[in-house]
Amino acid sequence: MIHLNVKIAAAHVLVILFWGSAFAGIRHGLEGYSPEHLSFLRLLIGSIALVFYAVLTKMILPEIKDLPVIFLFGFLGFAVYQTALSFGEKSVSAGAASLLVSTSPLFIGLLGRLFFGERTGKNYWFGAGISMIGIFLISFGSGGGFGLGIGVSLILIASLSESIYFVFQQNYLAKYGALPFTAYTIWAATIFMSLFAGGLGQEIAAASPGATFSTIYLGLFPTVIAYFAIAYITAESGAAEAANSLYLTPTAAFLIAWMWLGEVPSPLTVIGGVITLIGVSLTYLNAKIQAENSSSEVKG
């Protein structure tokens, strides 16, 4: 008999909807804001909301010795990720961007291999090769030809940056907890992005109410609530369970972009997306097999 954990299921729904909607929200926000101002304002709104959360929960402050690492993670996981993604979406559709970001398991597997000696079986490399074919098709469908256009390249950089954040944060998650550590890194990223604060007031005054609403939405829901939901899933069921949400996010992103922005993906983008997700799924299957083998070896 299948036992449904309602809280875990609800958290998955929140992650899929809010992260899926982020790509359309960015495209809409870019109609009134530059990529760097959109990223800064989004993080600033999220940071303010997190201050209230920190006060209400009496969140502890991080140790001074951990601040350099926290700032590095904030820079990579939020400042670089969100800014590169925003610049990339100037030329790449919301749906295609979500597919490219979904390649993060490829980078996570490669980083685990390079830095932690984790095994990557044939499924991983086969899946990575298939995903590269899909990425080139998405690039072509986005107008970049069969090379990697600048928009596609920037979104892949965003995916790599986010992957580094997820791979190396484990010790600090264990030390501080997922929610406090996420808050620390978002605050750190906001400080970095404040370098682009100049001219923001003029953009806010000139932007349409819709673009400003999209930015506020991005700051509160995809940036804060979705990260809290994924942290809850990770804490309750592990990283593998949390990763399951990522495979449905592109589907939600395509549907939301169609309803919100009227974006209709090209056939080549859809084909490339299916191929990419097949490749990424193979890498996930490889990771699951490796985990099961390691567990069997420990038991033996």
Rank of each mutant, 00 (worst) to 15 (best):
N5D: 15
I26D: 01
I278K: 02
A205T: 13
A243L: 14
I45F: 08
L246V: 13
T57I: 12
T185P: 09
A9R: 02
I233M: 11
F87W: 13
K7Y: 08
E263V: 11
L43A: 13
T212F: 14
M1N: 05
A243R: 10
A205F: 04
Y53E: 00
V80G: 05
Y184S: 06
V298C: 00
I60S: 12
A10E: 07
A128L: 14
A235L: 14
G29K: 06
I271L: 15
G147F: 09
T223E: 01
L106C: 10
A243H: 03
A10I: 13
L110N: 04
L268S: 01
I289K: 13
K122N: 03
S139W: 04
I8G: 01
F107S: 08
L154T: 09
Q170L: 09
M132D: 02
G143R: 04
P180N: 06
K65S: 11
P250V: 08
P68A: 03
L285M: 13
L268F: 02
G20A: 03
S139E: 07
A79L: 10
G198R: 08
G238H: 07
A206N: 11
T234M: 14
L156F: 05
L72W: 03
G20W: 01
F228E: 04
L160V: 15
A158R: 09
L50G: 02
Y184F: 15
L30D: 06
A158L: 12
S91N: 11
T283H: 03
Y227R: 06
L72C: 11
A9M: 14
G149V: 11
G238K: 09
L85S: 09
S237M: 14
F168A: 07
P62R: 02
I230P: 06
A22D: 02
L285Y: 09
G272E: 07
G129W: 02
G121P: 12
L99H: 02
N5E: 14
F75G: 09
M132G: 03
A189T: 12
S86I: 10
Y165K: 08
R119Q: 11
I2A: 01
A183T: 15
H12L: 07
N293Y: 01
A183M: 13
Y176N: 03
F196Y: 12
V101Y: 00
V101Q: 03
G129F: 11
A206V: 09
T269N: 11
V92P: 05
T283Y: 00
I186P: 07
I157P: 07
Y247L: 13
L268R: 04
G129M: 14
G151F: 05
A197R: 00
V69Q: 06
L179C: 00
I155D: 04
E31W: 00
I186M: 12
A84D: 05
L17V: 15
I191Q: 05
F213V: 14
A174P: 00
K7D: 06
S104M: 15
I16N: 04
I2E: 10
L268Q: 09
S159G: 15
L14T: 15
F73S: 06
I256K: 01
K7E: 12
A96Y: 01
F140P: 00
Y232M: 12
L30V: 10
G141P: 09
M59G: 03
W125S: 04
T120Y: 00
L156S: 08
